[in-house]
Structures are given as structure tokens and as C-alpha cells.
């Protein structure tokens, strides 16, 4: 449970910068703000749907900055040819949500 988050600090900084650039409201990004960013990856929509399922950990239809980092991490991994897991591996769960 105390394993280090797989999102490295330098990656987190990059993802946080993207997060802020999208105009979060109350520290959250709605699905309609995140969707075009993920679509921009040109990954299949069913893959992106799974990325969303895994990253919206509290299933409120919004991503906070940690959830957004999970989404971006999975998208970058998928672009490198790695498969998106069916469920979120514990090391990918943000420490704030364990």
C-alpha cells in the first residue's frame, strides 16, 4: 500500500501543467474537457473509454489532478504500445486515494 506511485515526480509535473492548461473548475476537469485531449492521442475510443474507467477512481465523471495523471500515464503507455490493464494495478493508484 505504501509502494511508490508509478507516476514519477517529473511526469507528474508535466501532467499537472497540462491539467492546469485545461482550466479546471474547483480542482476538477469535467469529461467534456478531458475527452478532446484523450481523443488527440488517436487511440481507439474503446481504449480511451477504459482509460477513463481506470482513472476516474471515484466515478464522479470528473478528474482531479491525480486522476488526470493516471489517465495521461495510461495514454502515454498505450502510445508506446503497452496494453491498458482491465483494472488499475495498486502501484498506479495515487497515494491520495489508497
Amino acid at each position: 500500500a505504501d509502494a511508490p506511485w508509478v507516476v514519477k515526480p517529473e511526469e507528474k509535473m508535466k501532467f499537472d501543467t497540462i491539467f492546469e492548461s485545461l482550466g479546471p473548475v474547483g480542482g476538477m476537469l469535467s469529461g467534456d474537457k478531458v475527452k478532446p485531449v484523450l481523443l488527440n492521442s488517436n487511440l481507439p475510443v474503446d481504449i480511451l473509454g477504459r482509460v477513463w474507467e481506470l482513472s476516474d477512481i471515484d466515478r464522479d465523471g470528473m478528474l482531479d489532478r491525480d486522476e488526470f495523471s493516471v489517465a495521461m500515464f495510461l495514454v502515454y503507455r498505450a502510445l508506446e504500445g503497452e496494453s491498458v490493464p482491465m483494472s488499475l494495478p495498486p502501484p498506479l493508484v495515487p497515494p491520495s486515494k489508497r
Partner: peptide, 13 residues
């Protein structure tokens, strides 16, 4: 339409 057990909060469904 959402799959059984799916989330209506998913913007990709």
C-alpha cells in the same frame, strides 16, 4: 446506451 455495470459518467461510452 451503457453496458451492464458500466458507468454513465464515462464520456467515451
Amino acid at each position: 446506451q451503457y453496458p451492464a455495470g458500466g458507468s454513465s459518467t464515462n464520456p467515451f461510452l
